[in-house]
């Protein structure tokens, strides 16, 4: 308990209380603080007047601007579409050849396509479109469903084995698991398939096995992959003679494929993307291949 005293440094009085040696000065609240207080309050009160703010039982004050975050964003979406309408219109109407020949439209395809591809497709096909581990490479000119921009656009729109009503459907049956071929036959046909893309695999000691595999292939597989094993884009059966693989081209993986079958699932983008966005993506994917000779 001490009495009030004068602080020599600041010239202010203390409040007269002492707590274990701590004292307080009775300095008045600086004018700046009060002004600051008033300024922030004026800001707040103004905001309350113009914007929705105070709850009133079952409703709330709507504010003089009568606005709301949802109204604002809806307007922005509409405005954005209007802003894009001119070029969206052009892209929608133009043929693929026209788009590919038009540098301005191709610039949009490049920038917008990059983003759309990155957010939607890269998860499977990777940012560079080169796929890997069960997802096809889109830059290797080896197309399951056809590499023209129209075919690509169709694949993107409906997807493959997707929930879309018009989805492309494809299935590689599980020959081994479902007992259509015995394990020996699976090995043989796998050896044959492997030899198609690896000619030096056909050594004299393997030639019998490969020939046995060829017979199996012709009776069992050719229906989809064709007599020449070059695939069939109608049913999405890939070419087996080149060295581009979705699931992998080593003997082991080929055996796994033939044994257990495959049913690649490519989602439909009809709901998430607009027709113009899909067209941009189709052109983008197409040009990825063109740029990768």
């Amino acid at each position: 308990m001490s009495v009030e005293e004068l602080d020599p440094v600041s010239g202010h009085r203390t409040t007269g209380h002492v707590w274990n040696g701590i004292k307080e000065l009775d300095t008045p609240v600086p004018r700046g603080v009060l002004i600051f207080l008033i300024v922030t309050h004026i800001f707040a009160v103004t905001w309350w007047f113009v914007m929705p703010t105070w709850p009133l039982g079952t409703t709330y004050t709507k504010g003089l601007l009568d606005t709301d975050q949802r109204k604002i964003v809806e307007q922005k979406i509409v405005d954005a579409e209007a802003q894009r309408a001119p070029w969206v219109d052009r892209i929608e109407k133009a043929s693929f050849d026209e788009i590919l020949a038009d540098p301005k439209m191709m610039e949009i395809v490049k920038t917008t396509g990059h983003r759309l591809f990155g957010d939607n497709c890269a998860a499977c096909h990777r940012r560079d479109g080169k796929g890997r581990s069960n997802y096809p490479n889109l830059t290797d000119h080896d197309w399951i469903w056809g590499g023209g921009p129209e075919a690509i656009m169709q694949t993107i729109t409906t997807g493959v084995n997707s929930s879309n009503a018009k989805s492309r459907i494809s299935q590689m049956p599980a020959f081994g698991r479902d007992g259509m071929l015995d394990p020996g036959q699976v090995d043989n046909v796998a050896a044959y398939v492997y030899s198609l893309s690896h000619p030096d695999y056909s050594t004299p000691e393997r030639i019998k096995q490969i020939e046995a595999g060829r017979q199996v292939f012709l009776t069992t597989c050719a229906a989809c992959h064709g007599q020449d094993a070059k695939g069939n884009q109608e049913v999405g059966a890939p070419n087996l003679t080149d060295n581009y693989w979705i699931y992998g081209g080593d003997i082991g993986t080929i055996i796994t494929t033939i044994h257990g079958g495959r049913e690649g699932h490519m989602p439909t983008w009809d709901e998430r993307l607009t027709p113009a966005q899909i067209k941009i993506l189709a052109t983008y994917v197409y040009s990825l291949g063109v740029e990768n000779p």
Binding site: A122, A123, C124, R126, S133, H265, P267
Partner: peptide, 29 residues
């Protein structure tokens, strides 16, 4: 990571499984 509010049916089950098992096997970044 990205928002997931509407991720339902964006990717296949197979992708989800592969991604959860090892995200970098499908998304190297």
């Amino acid at each position: 990571g990205p928002d997931l509010a509407r991720v339902g049916d964006k990717y296949s089950d197979l992708w989800q499984v592969a991604h959860l098992t090892n995200p970098r096997s499908v998304v190297p970044e």
